[in-house]
Structure formats: C-alpha cells, structure tokens
C-alpha cells in the first residue's frame, strides 16, 4: 500500500475503507481480528465523516494546508 493511498483517507469512498484499514493496520503492525473488524470499520467510517467536516470547515476558512491540497 503506497503512502498516497493512506494519505488519501479523506477522499476514499466508504466502500474502500476496508482496504485502507488493512493497509494502514499493516503499516502500524496492528492485527485487527475478524471478530471485531466490522466494528472497527464502522468507527473508522464515522471518523472519516467527522474528519471531512473539519477539512471542509478549514477549506471555507481558507486555512491551509489541508490534506486534500497536499495530495
């Protein structure tokens, strides 16, 4: 998994979150058990929504740099 894909967290579609999570977990040496993976992914999707709201607000305030513009 390339850095670009892990850095594009804000842009990825919800359907791609599982692949993102696997790649990021591998980078961090985290083993996410199948038994709790669905709940982790649900939480990650919620965090993405929160992060997108913050990113949009910074964009509106013209506070740079945001992740989207870095990529």
């Amino acid at each position: 998994m390339s850095r670009v894909r892990t850095e594009s967290f804000l842009q990825i579609d919800e359907a791609v979150i599982p692949q993102y999570a696997d790649a990021r977990a591998s980078e961090l040496d985290l083993n996410i058990s199948a038994s709790f993976r669905p709940s982790v992914l649900e939480n990650l999707a919620a965090l993405q929504a929160h992060a997108r709201r913050v990113d949009a607000a910074l964009h509106d305030l013209d506070v740079a740099p945001t992740e989207a513009r870095q990529i």
């Binding site: 850095e7 965090l47 992060a51 992740e67």
Partner: peptide, 22 residues
C-alpha cells in the same frame, strides 16, 4: 473502547493536525 481506539490508530497524522488547526 478497543474498537474506537483501533479506528483512531488508523487515522493518518494529518487528521489530528487539522483538528488542532480548527
């Protein structure tokens, strides 16, 4: 708690930087 922490671990650093900027 674990599932929320694990999700948090997967966040890239820039998300925290943005939160602090806001």
């Amino acid at each position: 708690v674990r599932d929320r922490l694990l999700a948090g671990a997967l966040l890239p650093d820039v998300i925290a930087a943005q939160a602090n900027t806001y």
